[in-house]
Design a protein around this nucleic acid. Structure first.
Lengths: 347, 347
DNA sequence: ACAGTTGCGGCAAGCGGTTGCCAAAAGTTG
DNA sequence: CAACTTTTGGCAACCGCTTGCCGCAACTGT
């Protein structure tokens, strides 16, 4: 229709559906059975070296790539791992994604990335729909209840990140202990009225941080305030900043950097100086925390590493070593990174 | 071994390998043949409504989810699209990933995310290894040569982003035209000596920007400088800043925001004021460009939308509508977002 | 030289769907 | 009411690969 040329030459820019070589083609070329090819490629020791080399040559010549689909069908494993994050938008998760991606690739797995949009329903749905296409799941900051989580992890291999639970292997980032550091830091700067700026109520780590905050603050005799919840986005920072200013607190520990950065912007607009009038501590040390204005004092977390560890834990669950039982909990250390958003309490 | 309890109750936290329901189970329960189930689920009109409802009920009851593997095996499509980006670390690609992810999910596709680490070899390798597991590819800022690209896109459906090529459908972000705007902006502020801070030499968009920059600068009688190439990361900003300062230029247009933000930091360290002593224009308007110090004037691009459009183009290539031939080129508009990093030329 | 191992490769039965083809059932028409 | 068309559902052959089982041949020890 387009070009009535002789013999249907491939149109430029469109895929030629030329049949891909199969294991059969390789077997034929190498003069062996398909089973031998399969073994030569996956369990090299199961096949004579000479035969194997012939097969490898044939495979190379044909440019053969096994179909992971077919492989999966018969072997029952997909060699893929799904990573579910509440919000792809959030730089925090990007570091996680980067970590998982890296480690998964190294182990020969494919990463299936899913954005659950902070919704436990979507999370469950993905978990359900993908159970056939992934060997395991990594849930970053899962919004699931304990019950749901237990149920899910009874059905398929799961590792959670920043969501402790008895039923599931977990890697948690130890922000609570750094909250203590942050509080000490603020106290030593002379702050007496401190405020916790809360993130999503469904977030386990938010609850964990608040608990420590409250406990430690009162232990130190500080006047404690609590505002929120706020959506953990820079855009919610304005509301958070206003609310924080109203409490009369001179220092805030904020659920995460995103929110903290948003607050910084708003405070600046309102002429509230940071740190002279108010100190701000964020959490996560995401991309941007070092170059915002002022640079943010924050609870630095090895986020990417957390992603990596999560993958390791999942993989050791998928391919268990008979002797050693796989680790159920990894705690990633954190520390306070002090930059310019914290300073002495106003006189 | 762990608990010698009676009858191997599932160990907490480990997956129970309970067999998943297959299409056969559904067929049995509904009292029809598997073929009918298959059809009821994929081509509803091909089956009597009453039968279909019975099948749907059975499927729901069994909690049946078709195995995408098996589906793919027989149908030849995987319902997955691979997205290759040069560097997951780079916020620019976050936005692309977000866009593709969104659109792919809406179309019922799975996204396979791959980091090619700025290497054309890894890109080719991924393209090759995954050709069985993905129906198509989206190459963001591909590092491939025209020849390689042509070859690849002759074999499989590909859409590129920010990498124009005759052989492949492409969505380009029209930064060049915004470079003109930026240049005008700078000229109107009285700048006469301008510098282009170059990104990776393998980047098509870098070349495109430089070409326009050079042409338009000289057309306007500006003294043009060129420094680089630099790796597009904030850490390269220091070197870039130093080099830029040495040229004597009063304004820089920088390959991307990452690099620009890095320069901002370095300039500040060196006591070179932005914009009083030097104006900086970035490109992309990534996360962070609005809250760095000073906020960055930049060429804003609808990055996420570019990702979405790329997916649309790919999908229309995968499922062609007989009548209409699919679009080969989409140009995304850009505009200059003026913030605080540009100002009048120093006297 | 003989029975017992061991190494290596082939056979064939799936894995869980899809789909071309066919036949029975149902609906149409003159 | 017979002949014809249209629905509708079943049969069975794959899709490409893995794997349990088997048998042959070469090797071992006595």
């Amino acid at each position: 229709m387009v070009t009535p040329g002789s013999g249907g030459e491939p149109r430029e820019g469109s895929a030629v559906p030329e049949r891909m070589p199969t294991i059969r083609d390789v077997a034929l070329l190498a003069g062996v059975a398909t089973s031998t090819v399969s073994r030569a490629l996956s369990k090299p020791e199961r096949v004579n070296r000479h035969t194997r080399e012939r097969i490898e040559a044939a495979a190379a010549q044909l440019n053969y790539v096994p179909s992971s689909q077919a492989q999966g069908l018969s072997s029952g494993r997909t060699n893929a791992v799904a990573v579910l994050v509440p919000d792809i938008t959030n730089p925090f998760y990007f570091d996680i994604i980067r970590g998982t991606q890296h480690q998964l690739k190294a182990a020969g797995y494919t990463q299936l990335l899913v954005d659950t949009e902070e919704s436990s329903e979507m999370e469950l749905e993905a978990l359900h729909k993908m159970r056939r296409s992934a060997d395991g799941f990594i849930l970053a900051a899962s919004r699931l209840t304990d019950t749901q989580l237990a149920e899910v992890s009874g059905i398929q291999p799961v590792v959670t990140i920043n969501r402790a639970s008895a039923s599931t292997p977990t890697v948690v980032i130890d922000t609570p202990s750094a909250v203590v550091q942050a509080l000490e830091h603020l106290a030593s700067l002379g702050h007496h009225r401190v405020c916790y700026v809360s993130g999503p109520p469904t977030s386990w780590s938010n609850r964990a941080r608040w608990n420590v905050f409250e406990e430690e603050s009162s232990k130190r005799g500080l006047e404690v305030h609590h505002i929120g919840p706020f959506t953990p986005k820079t855009t919610s920072g304005a509301a958070a900043a206003d609310a924080a200013a109203r409490t009369g607190a001179t220092a805030c520990i904020v659920f995460n950097d995103l929110l903290a950065i948003g607050m910084l912007q708003r405070l600046r607009e309102r002429g509230i100086r940071v740190p002279e009038d108010m100190s701000i501590v964020g959490s996560d040390d995401i991309f941007g925390a070092d170059f915002c204005n002022p640079p943010l004092t924050t609870i630095a977390s090895p986020i990417e590493q957390a992603g990596r560890v999560a993958v390791s834990m999942l993989l050791s669950q998928l391919n268990p070593v008979p002797g050693r039982s796989s680790r159920q909990l990894a705690v990633m250390p954190t520390h306070l990174t002090i930059r310019a958003s914290t300073g002495p309490a106003p006189a």
